[in-house]
């Protein structure tokens, strides 16, 4: 599903973000990526949806080698990967429905298929009754659910969440986790970078810890492992 072999990343300004990363994530797994700020979590995540390219090594997603993937094929890779951000990245002038539909519009989905599918995912994130609202009219948790709906609307095999609960209060964070677990149960691989110790220690999943650009720990049903 997701495989990294001897991956290193050095940015053009000389910053060495990742060193010799070897990892294998199977289909259907739920994985936390933890570690201090600046340890390389974001780079690790960004390389999976090909926002960054590794300087060395190779990354294989769904059987496709990202290091040899041609630029023009990148969009098709991204259609199989849903991304959720800490700051939601919703378009403020579009309604909830339109924000979610946006992901299907750019791949030129049929109008009726699009409508049906958008309502389906809004049902999964429990926002069916707020389809006509603008993002500003929603709470933070609801906005994050919209962005999750957008990430899963084209049935990706992997959902990547970069600190999805970073901007949310604890109660809302648990709601978001419910939804991510639900998505995972439906067979989608979920990869989540987080600083939320309570969540990691309560909902036990595989934990990959990154420090100074190296994987220092990789445990099934692991702990957050950092003192706050």
């Amino acid at each position: 599903m997701i495989e990294m072999i001897d991956v290193s990343k050095t940015y053009s300004n000389g910053v060495n973000a990742l060193n010799d990363i070897d990892i294998l994530i199977e289909k259907g797994e739920f994985v936390y990526v933890v570690g201090p700020s600046g340890a390389g979590k974001s780079t690790f995540i960004k390389m999976i949806y090909r926002e960054e390219k590794p300087s060395q090594g190779s990354i294989i997603i769904n059987g496709a080698d990202l290091t040899t993937l041609k630029e023009k094929h990148v969009p098709y890779l991204r259609r199989k990967i849903g991304v959720v951000f800490q700051d939601f990245k919703l378009l403020p002038k579009l309604s909830v429905f339109e924000n979610v539909a946006f992901a299907l519009e750019v791949i030129e989905e049929q109008r009726d298929v699009l409508r049906k599918r958008v309502m389906e995912v809004l049902d999964i994130v429990k926002l069916k009754n707020k389809a006509r609202f603008l993002p500003d009219e929603l709470s933070g948790g609801e906005q994050q659910r919209v962005s999750i709906a957008r990430a899963i609307v084209n049935n990706p095999r992997v959902v990547i969440a970069d600190e999805p609960t970073g901007n949310l209060d604890p109660d809302t964070s648990w709601e978001i986790m419910d939804i991510l677990e639900d998505i995972n149960r439906r067979g989608t691989t979920v990869l989540m970078a987080t600083h939320n110790r309570e969540i990691v220690n309560t909902i036990k999943k595989r934990v990959i810890a990154i420090e100074s650009g190296r994987i220092v720990r990789d445990e099934m049903r692991g702990d957050y492992g950092y003192e706050r």
Binding site: R79, K89, L91, R150
Partner: peptide, 15 residues
Amino acid sequence: KEIQIMKLVGATNGF
């Protein structure tokens, strides 16, 4: 921002 989101959800450059 819109372009960034478009790219992330897999819009082609042509689009």
